[in-house]
């Protein structure tokens, strides 16, 4: 260092080497997410009580809580939850399983890739809600059209994440399988699919979130019961407490599915460091 060499003679400047590493490595902090939630709710509660958040801007969190409690107590919550959950489970199960299958095909076969990737790219950005009338014509106004809408919505993101995951499977492992004379089907089952599983599962988080979004859209179609129907009804009456109660339920559903996938990841991907 130039200033070190220019220092007055007789004294050698000595400095501690400054620390320059660290950072860029987020670690899990327990409870912080919860604290953020609570603080946000408290601020809104305070604002609505003190008056600097207008009544029409946001409902009071405590009122929303009361509405939720009332829903649960009267049994209405389950009346709305049950059909919604069925739609979500059936629809996304269809979409996801089909999506994984097509994604693996695209990942494995050149013709499937050449033929289906553009198709999926064309389907992906279509707002599925815009297709609602079409689904009604195809599948009727009953449950089938709702399943189809959620299935199509979860299908495309699952395909994209699955074939990406298959592409990322370590080719040396596949060569190894071939060099030991494993059958094609064994290689797919024992090497390709397990190797793609981390990518498929993280894609599933996105797909299921989209599934929940489309649940509300699906219930715009002549549904009497369901969380989406409940929200839409509240919305058209400008009943903000009810609207927010419904939104809270959807958010909770999102958190639940995401942590469910987290659990599956923990069990199935224990082999990862």
């Amino acid at each position: 260092m130039s200033d070190a060499t220019l220092a007055p003679s007789g004294q050698i400047p000595t400095r501690k080497v400054p620390f320059r590493g660290g950072g860029f490595r987020p670690v899990a902090k327990r409870g912080i997410g919860f604290v953020v939630f609570v603080v946000l709710l408290l601020v809104i509660e305070w604002g609505t009580r003190a008056g600097w958040i207008g009544n029409l801007t946001l409902p009071r969190p405590s009122d929303v809580g009361q509405t939720l409690w009332g829903l649960a107590e009267s049994g209405q919550l389950w009346v709305h939850m049950q059909p919604s959950l069925t739609r979500l489970v059936v629809g996304s199960l269809l979409g996801v399983s089909l999506g994984v299958a097509v994604g693996v095909l695209i990942g494995l076969f050149s013709y499937a890739r050449a033929g289906l990737v553009p198709l999926v790219a064309a389907l992906f950005p279509i707002p599925k809600i815009a297709l609602l009338p079409l689904f009604v014509i195809w599948f009727g106004i009953d449950e089938a059209s709702k399943y189809a809408l959620i299935a199509l919505g979860t299908f495309t993101p699952t395909v994209v994440s699955t074939y990406g995951a298959v592409d990322n499977v370590d080719r040396t492992l596949i060569r190894m399988g071939q060099s030991f004379g494993l059958s094609w089907w064994s290689i797919v089952r024992k090497i390709v699919v397990p190797g793609a599983l981390p990518g498929i599962l993280s894609g599933l988080r996105v797909s299921l979130a989209i599934g929940i979004i489309l649940l509300v859209a699906a219930e715009m179609l002549g549904a009497e019961y369901g969380i989406g129907a409940y929200i839409l009804q509240a919305g058209s009456l400008y009943d903000l407490e009810k609207l927010f109660a419904g939104v809270v339920i959807l958010s909770a559903l999102g958190v639940l599915t995401s942590s469910g996938i987290g659990l599956i990841e923990k069990r199935l991907l224990r082999w990862r460091a």
């Binding site: 040396t172 492992l173 060099s179 030991f180 004379g181 494993l182 064994s186 024992k190 082999w271 990862r272």
Partner: peptide, 29 residues
């Protein structure tokens, strides 16, 4: 069982299978 058998530079072990499982992989077929 497999006349020409490789040992690879980067080991090519399946990370999701145990030591025993990696060996049984080539026997199962």
């Amino acid at each position: 069982l497999n006349p020409l058998t490789y040992v690879f530079q980067d080991f090519a072990l399946l990370p999701w299978r145990s030591v025993g499982g990696n060996i049984s992989l080539v026997l199962e077929d």
